[in-house]
Amino acid sequence: MHPVIDVQGAVKQYGVGDAAIFALDGVDLQIKQGEYVAIMGPSGSGKSTLMNIMGALDNMTSGKYFLDGIEIDSLGEDALALVRGRKIGFIFQSFNLIPRTTALANVELPLAYQGIKGKERRERALAALKVVGLSERVNHEPTQLSGGQQQRVAVARALCTRPALLLADEPTGALDSKSTHDLLDLFDQINAAGRTVVLITHEDDVASRAKRVVRMRDGKIISDVLNKRASV
């Protein structure tokens, strides 16, 4: 069985010549179905760049990236949109909900872009909101929700399309400890259900919840270890 994520020799270069900066400097990373991976590293280590490439939000200068066996770099604009919609659920540090739009409408959005209509769409969105524990707040707009609640809406939005892969770029970065704890419990639950989860963090206690920790520095992977999964 092929890995969910297969990054081979990924290079991301900004600028040219003497001014060239390598955000990624030859990264190889394979992640198998059902893994729970934390990517750690200081700022500027290239972890976010790697995440954006894995989420098909950014392209790389050279290298290959296979997502679920599909070579992403060879895809056109429309196919990329499909991949983003169906294969990947992406969670941002800053939530990135559509402003002035209810939680339900936000969660329905990726389903709508996939052409799922009316009742089914609504049911799936409500189910996802129920999973993240926001059934009571479906008609609230982002500004009426706390940071933790907004992030859970974002998780519901990422989950409702039943993606193979859940990518989270510092999802707890803007949250207090209680919300962080709730969100990590949610990720555990999602991973336990068989979904692949990859998250970026620079907090050790967040990373300790993952089964595998990848450390980066200066655009390279410097360590890749399995967690002993110490009791929390």
């Binding site: 604009e77 949109a81 983003r84 872009y113």
Partner: peptide, 16 residues
Amino acid sequence: TREIGIRKAIGAPKRA
């Protein structure tokens, strides 16, 4: 523009 980015990130085709 940011909203457009969000929509693209969750799978909106350019045409839509």
